[in-house]
């Protein structure tokens, strides 16, 4: 579904992603690990098309279509939806109204809000005074209303308390795998896919992840089975990944 080819991205005049390539296949949930500052959020923001994330070279393709230069809403129309790590406050815009226009009347948003324990937030201004965990739940509420084909989640579990994580996890699960309604976007027939950033790996308790990538210093250090990667990272930390990548690079260089 999503193909990223040799992507180099600059933020604020600094190159953050270097020649990064990665694939997310239809029907697959892909997890992205990596230390703080390795460029995970930058990658997701670039896929969604936010300004300030300047593609210097490389391509982003969605179902074969080059979307590298499309505006944000055109990407949303084609079925990409994102949970940002730090979405902005929308003073004066009630969550209720945002959820309503996002769902275009296609969902029982009151019920979803209820399930996420978010009913009392519907009258509040989007993100204003929300705690970290409340922001995540509000984002999942919006995403459920949006029902994208390609779901991008930036640390969905961070800041969420032990009780809410159950509800949130269940909703993330529904968003990715379950109940069988069609997802939004022009390519709905092709099914869903996800790219999820996680620090703790906690979200893996709720979703079936198929593939994992580890990012270091703006490029992919390695990929593999997400649970195995998580175990390695827990055991040895990210330094091991960096070493591992340098070793591999050396091997490749030696072979040339």
């Amino acid at each position: 579904m999503l193909e990223i080819e040799n992507l180099t991205v600059e933020v604020g005049g600094r190159e953050i992603l270097h020649n990064l390539s990665l694939n997310v296949m239809t029907g697959y949930t892909t997890v992205l690990f990596g230390p703080n500052g390795s460029g995970k959020s930058t990658l997701l923001m670039t896929i969604m098309g936010f300004s300030g994330y300047k593609v210097k070279s490389g391509r982003i393709k969605l179902n074969g279509e080059d979307i590298t230069d499309l505006p944000v809403n055109e990407r949303a129309k084609r079925g990409i939806g994102m949970m940002m790590q730090r979405p902005p406050n929308l003073t004066g815009v009630r969550l209720k109204d945002l959820v309503r226009v996002t769902s275009k009347g296609s969902k029982d948003t009151a019920k979803i809000a209820e399930e996420l324990d978010m009913t009392r937030f519907l009258e509040r201004d989007v993100n204003v005074g929300f705690s970290g965990g409340e922001i995540k739940r509000s984002e999942i509420l919006q995403l459920t209303a949006q029902n994208p084909c390609l779901v991008l989640l930036d640390e969905p579990e961070s800041g969420v308390d032990m009780v809410s994580i159950e509800k949130l996890g269940a909703k993330v699960h529904d968003l990715l795998q379950g109940p069988s309604h069609h997802c939004a976007g022009w390519r709905e027939k092709s099914g869903k896919a996800a790219l999820i950033i996680t620090h703790t790996g906690q979200i893996l308790d709720y979703v079936e992840a198929d593939r994992g990538y580890v990012m270091c210093n703006g490029s992919v250090a390695c990929s593999g089975n997400p649970r195995e990667l998580l175990q390695e990272i827990r055991k040895m930390g990210y330094n091991e990944c960096i070493r591992c990548k340098i070793n591999r690079a050396n091997v490749i260089e030696e072979n040339i």
Partner: peptide, 16 residues
């Protein structure tokens, strides 16, 4: 008007 707010809404499918 803050561009990040506009784009946030655009990422939910709204036109600019």
């Amino acid at each position: 008007i803050a561009q990040d707010q506009v784009e946030y809404l655009m990422s939910r499918g709204l036109s600019e």
